[in-house]
């Protein structure tokens, strides 16, 4: 069983989406020990003992959104929302390594995520500007 199936089917954490199931779309992205991974490529058994953060767990305990989430809201980087959890978690990991990315770096950050609504311009904007919401 894949980590993705455990999250969605057993734990009812449906914020994590399934698109392709083969590592190509990024909709299933979660943080495993702080690193963005495709949960459709990770065996649940293999994730045992790791800290897994899904989109449900990204905001702080009092419900305040993470700076990356704030940036996505402010910049209208969301259309239907299907790709959004994966985009935000991919960006979260990347921004931890490169906090003030150039536009090219921001594109690289989300290069593993497809947006079927094609809203990339706003998403890239949000990733570039996210540090301002810290």
């Amino acid at each position: 069983m894949k980590l993705l199936d455990v999250l969605r089917e057993e734990l009812n954490l449906t914020g994590t989406k399934q698109g392709c199931g083969t590592g190509d779309c990024g909709a299933c992205t979660v943080l495993m020990n702080g690193k963005a991974v495709n949960s459709c490529l990770v065996l649940a058994l293999d994730a045992a003992g790791s800290e897994v953060t899904t989109i449900e767990g990204l905001s702080s305990k009092n419900g305040e959104l993470d700076p990356v989430q704030k940036a996505f809201v402010k910049h209208g980087a969301i259309q239907c929302g299907f790709c959004t959890p994966g985009m935000i978690l991919a960006a979260k990991d990347f921004l931890g390594r490169i906090p003030r990315p150039t536009e090219a770096e921001a594109r690289d950050a989300i290069s593993g995520n497809l947006c079927r609504c094609t809203g990339y311009a706003k998403i890239v904007e949000a990733v570039v500007e996210a540090h301002k919401y810290e």
Partner: peptide, 11 residues
């Protein structure tokens, strides 16, 4: 950097 994507490269 030419390989796969950021997430896949973490695995």
């Amino acid at each position: 950097r030419t390989i796969a994507s950021h997430q896949v490269r973490n695995l």
